[in-house]
């Protein structure tokens, strides 16, 4: 869970290292050992992730017919996406989906973690209940929410709200809002767990001291909690951004891109082109575009945390 930049400032300072630790005695140490230890992980990752992404890049530069690679077409597949309004519409919807979900999930996780970190009656019960959606798979979450929001048989009485029938899945804006809501529902628990873990490393004395100094809750949050949480929030932001951009399962099972393409995201395009229409080249191009988005956002966060470390 720690997708961590080496630049991230440590939360606590290490105690001064005793001299004996700092000294290295390389003579007796087998030099090959670290390579041997790291090699299995690198090999597995290379075979399962790197080889396929190279394969996918190659696919995206070719015309394909079912599973057959045909002519090299250069960037034509990318041009087909980036030169069409439909392609840009998908990118726009993906950005809305990711940014709106982040804007809801991160403050919510931080807030809930804060609540769960205070002594309260039934604290363990609240913790178990609130974090429970974490163990619900995306498929199940989609089905449960579809059933809950059902206009005709659902418990919320959406079939007749002051005379109007609210069918979330027939209205483009409501469908996107519901999708974002469910997305936040499945993803906030892990973010909350990470925030809670980080909050517990902040000594209570520090908060107490700020109380004595007369700092209000807002100042305390800004001056103590936020700086100490920065590395964790960075990890959470990266994790969630990757999860949201690459989200296929939830969208596929919740709205399948509908109604009228209102929830058609880039990730779903990549899936549909590859698995429904067997345009493997075009599908690969969509997924490479996703990869680029992941890298751009990842690099942006790293830059952000680095500049904060300087200041």
């Amino acid at each position: 869970m720690t997708v961590k930049s080496p630049e991230a400032p440590p939360v606590r300072e290490h105690r001064p290292v005793p001299a004996v630790q700092a000294r290295r005695r390389p003579s007796t140490r087998p030099r090959l050992l670290p390579y041997g230890l790291l090699l299995p992980a690198v090999v597995v990752v290379a075979v399962v992730s790197v080889f396929p992404i190279v394969f996918a890049l190659n696919l995206s530069l070719h015309e394909t017919r079912f599973t057959q690679l045909e002519d090299f077409v250069g960037l034509d597949n990318y041009a087909a996406i980036l030169g069409s309004s439909a392609g840009w519409a998908s990118i726009g919807r993906s950005l809305i989906y990711v940014v709106a979900s982040l804007a809801l999930a991160i403050p919510m996780s931080l807030g809930i973690a804060h609540l769960l970190n205070r002594p309260a009656r039934f604290r363990l019960v609240f913790r178990a209940l609130i974090l429970m959606p974490w163990v619900i798979s995306q498929t199940v979450a989609a089905l449960l929410w579809r059933w809950l929001l059902n206009a005709d048989y659902g418990p919320l009485g959406l079939g007749d709200v002051a005379g109007t029938r609210i069918d979330v899945f027939a209205d483009p804006v409501q469908a996107m809002a519901a999708l974002i809501l469910v997305n936040v529902w499945i993803s906030y628990p892990l973010a909350t767990i990470l925030c809670l873990a980080a909050l517990q490393t902040i000594p209570a004395e520090l908060e107490e001291a700020s109380d004595v100094d007369g700092a209000g809750p807002f100042t305390r949050f800004r001056r103590i909690t936020l700086p100490m949480m920065a590395p964790t929030l960075f990890v959470v932001a990266i994790l969630l951004t990757l999860l949201y951009f690459n989200m296929v399962t939830l969208v596929l099972t919740f709205t399948a891109g509908g109604p009228f393409g209102a929830t058609q995201l880039v990730s779903l395009d990549a899936f549909n082109e590859s698995f429904s229409f067997f345009n493997l080249g075009l599908g690969a191009a969509y997924s490479v575009i996703l990869f680029v988005f992941n890298i751009v956002f990842g690099a942006a966060y790293i830059k952000l945390i680095r500049s904060e470390g300087d200041g």
Partner: peptide
């Protein structure tokens, strides 16, 4: 850095290659 970068690869991007593999 290499290992970190691979976590940025979207699952959907490598699903088809993985199937063939």
């Amino acid at each position: 850095f290499f290992i970190l970068m691979t976590s940025m690869i979207p699952g959907i991007a490598i699903l088809v290659p993985l199937y063939f593999l």
